[in-house]
Design a protein around this nucleic acid. Sequence first.
DNA 1: ACGTGATTGTGATAAAATTAACAAGCTATT
DNA 2: AATAGCTTGTTAATTTTATCACAATCACGT
Lengths: 217, 217
Amino acid sequence: MVKKNDNRDFSQIPRVVIKRLFKYHSALENLLSKGTVKVSSKSLSADVHVKASQLRKDLAYCGEFGTRGKGYDVKYLNGKLAEILGLHTEWNYILAGFGHVGHAFVCYEGIFRKGFNVKGIFDIDEKKIGQVFRGIEICDISKMPEIVREHNVQIGVITVPFDSGQSVCDKMIEAGITAILNFAPVLLKPKKSIFIERIDISRELVTLSHYLSHHKE
Amino acid sequence: MVKKNDNRDFSQIPRVVIKRLFKYHSALENLLSKGTVKVSSKSLSADVHVKASQLRKDLAYCGEFGTRGKGYDVKYLNGKLAEILGLHTEWNYILAGFGHVGHAFVCYEGIFRKGFNVKGIFDIDEKKIGQVFRGIEICDISKMPEIVREHNVQIGVITVPFDSGQSVCDKMIEAGITAILNFAPVLLKPKKSIFIERIDISRELVTLSHYLSHHKE
DNA sequence: ACGTGATTGTGATAAAATTAACAAGCTATT
DNA sequence: AATAGCTTGTTAATTTTATCACAATCACGT
C-alpha cells in the first residue's frame, strides 16, 4: 500500500492541527486495541468530537492515507500519525523541580508508554540531592550539561515554583535542550529560539470560574 | 472613575480571549506588586507577548477601562479583569482520584491563592479512604452528592487514571457539579450540558516530539 | 464489465481570529 | 486656550481556521 506522502514539510502544520492529530492517534490506538481494522472519517471523527470534513482536512496536511469508498486502515493510519507526531522514536527528557508536580510527572504512566524517558532530575533542595528515584539520582543543576550530553537529552520539563522558572530555562538552553515543557507560572523568554509548550493549571481553572460566573442557568 | 461597562454579556467571550485575559490579569498582579500605577496597552501587551492591538481588542469585549492618551489604571483594570474571570469570589471544588496528579493539584499553591478551595477528596482505594489530608477526609465516591450539597461545590476535578474518568464524570454531574477540570486521558461525554476543560499532559508533550522530529536544524 | 453505494481528497465558501490603521479624546505645556 | 504628543477604542483589512459540497475513486455484487 504505497501512498503519495512524499517530501511533505510536516514542520508547517499548525499547532491546532497537531493537537488534533494526536486525538486521532489516541482514538486509533483505542480502535486498534479493540481489533478494529478499518475506520471511516465519519466514525473516527465522531469519536473525538470533530467534524469529518475537519479530520480529512487535517490529514490532507500530511498526505493521503485512505482509500475512497472504503475508509482508512486503522493500523496503517495510526503508524503514519505516530511518525508525524514523532512517536516512532524514544525521547529523553530531564526534569527540574522535584516537588509535587515534578513527582507526578515522572510517575505519569502515559508519558513513559509513549516513549519519553527521564534521564535526569534536578532540585535545589539539599535534602533531595543524592536521593535516587526510579534509578535516577536527583542532582544539583550544575550537573545538567553533563547529563544532557551523555544521555542525548532533547526535552526539558520545568516544574519549579514561581520565578525560578526563567533561570532554569536559561540553564537548559545552555545545556543544549531544544524543547521545553513548562509547568511554572511564568512566561519564559528563551535566549535562543527553541520550542516551548506551556501547561498552566491556574489558567484552565480560571476558565471554569469565568464560566460559572457568567453562565448562571 | 465610572466607565461604560453596562449590561455586557461576558458569556459570549471566546475561550481564547478568556485565556489571554488571564494572562493580562497575571501580568497586572505582577505590576501591582511592584507598585506600578499606570500602564499602557503597549507595555502590558509586551509583557505577555501579544500585540497591543490584540490586547485592546480583547478588552473591548468587556468594556472600556482606559483613558486615551494616558493608559490603564493598573489596580482598576486588574479588579475588572478579576471580576470578569470570576476571581472576585471563592469557589469550592472536589477532586476524584488521589494519586500523584491529584495530590499535586491539591498542594498547588496558585490554586488556593486564587480562591479555589478543596471541599472533598474521593478515591476507590480502601487504604486511602478514611485518611485525612489537610483537614479533608478522603471518602468513597458514594458520599459525593452529600458533600457537594453541604459545601456548595461547583467544580469537579478528575485526576483518575484511564477509563474510570467517564463514570466519575457521570457521578459528578449527578451530584450537581456544573464545571469539570479533567486530567484523565479520556474525552468525557457528559450526560448534561456542562462546562469541561481538559488538561492532557501527553498531548502537550507530543507537540514537542513532533517539533523535534521535523524541525531538525 | 457495469452500476450502485460509500467515502475520500480538495477546491470553494464561510466563520473566526488577528493585525493594521486611524479618528477621538485625554494630558501637559506653553 | 491652543498645540503637540500619546494612547485608547473601533472600524477595516488580512490571515487563519473551519465547514461545506462535490467530483474522483474505489469495492462489491450482479
